[in-house]
Computed example of a mutant assay.
Amino acid sequence: MQIAAESPEALGLDPGKLARACEIVESHIAEDFHPGAQLAVARNGRLALYRCFGRASVEPPRFVDERSLFPIFSNTKVITAAAVWTLVEEGRLRFSDRVAEYVPEFEAHGKGNVTVAHLLTHQAGFPSAEVSAECFTDRDRLRRAVCDFRPEWEAGSRLSYHRTSAHWVIALLIEAITGADFRDEIRRRVIAPLGLAGEMFLGLPAAEELRAATMYTPRQDGAWPPDSIEATTLFKRAGIPGAGAYATARAMAVFYQMMVQGGIWSGVRIVSPRMIDYVTRDFTGDLVDDYTGDTMHRGLGPFSRGTSPTVRGLGAIAHPRTFGHSGVGTSYCWADPTSGLSFAFLSNCRRDNAWHNKRMDTLSTLAHAAILR
Rank of each mutant, 00 (worst) to 15 (best):
R183H: 04
L372S: 14
A245T: 07
H368L: 14
R373W: 15
L202C: 11
I72V: 13
A213N: 06
D294K: 11
H109W: 11
K358Q: 15
T284M: 09
G329H: 06
C147Q: 00
R143N: 09
A238Q: 07
I186P: 13
L159M: 06
A108Q: 15
V279N: 06
R312D: 05
I177C: 08
R20E: 15
G91P: 03
F235E: 01
R187Y: 14
F53I: 04
A212K: 07
V311A: 14
L49K: 07
I29M: 04
R98A: 05
E130I: 13
W85Q: 05
R62S: 09
F149E: 10
R269S: 03
G222E: 07
R51S: 13
V25T: 03
S57T: 09
R94G: 13
M259Y: 00
D282P: 08
R188V: 03
F235D: 05
I317E: 15
V260I: 02
A335Q: 04
M215G: 03
G12A: 02
R141E: 10
R158A: 12
I79M: 07
L341T: 09
T365H: 04
S266M: 01
H122R: 11
C22F: 07
A176S: 12
R305A: 04
P218I: 01
V190H: 08
I229A: 09
P337L: 01
P193F: 05
F235T: 00
Y216I: 05
G110S: 01
L119F: 07
A370R: 05
R144S: 13
A4V: 12
A108S: 15
C135L: 08
M296A: 02
R373F: 14
I371L: 12
G242P: 08
S326F: 14
A316E: 12
A206G: 05
A37H: 14
H109A: 11
A19K: 09
Y291T: 13
W265V: 01
I229K: 10
T322A: 13
Y246W: 15
E208I: 00
V88Q: 08
L314E: 05
I72P: 11
L202F: 14
D227T: 02
A48Q: 08
P127M: 01
T330R: 10
R321Q: 10
I177V: 14
A231V: 06
W355G: 12
S266W: 00
P8S: 03
A176E: 00
L202D: 13
T121D: 03
S68Q: 05
R144L: 10
A206M: 01
D97T: 00
D227E: 11
V311I: 12
A176Y: 05
L287S: 14
P309M: 03
A238C: 04
R312N: 12
A249E: 06
R139S: 10
G263C: 02
M258S: 01
E66D: 14
T330V: 09
R219N: 02
R274H: 15
T217P: 03
A367V: 08
S132K: 08
A83K: 11
I170A: 06
R274T: 12
E175Q: 05
I371A: 11
G242W: 04
Y278R: 13
S157T: 09
T322Q: 10
A207D: 15
P273N: 08
N113V: 09
L372Q: 13
F303P: 06
V58I: 13
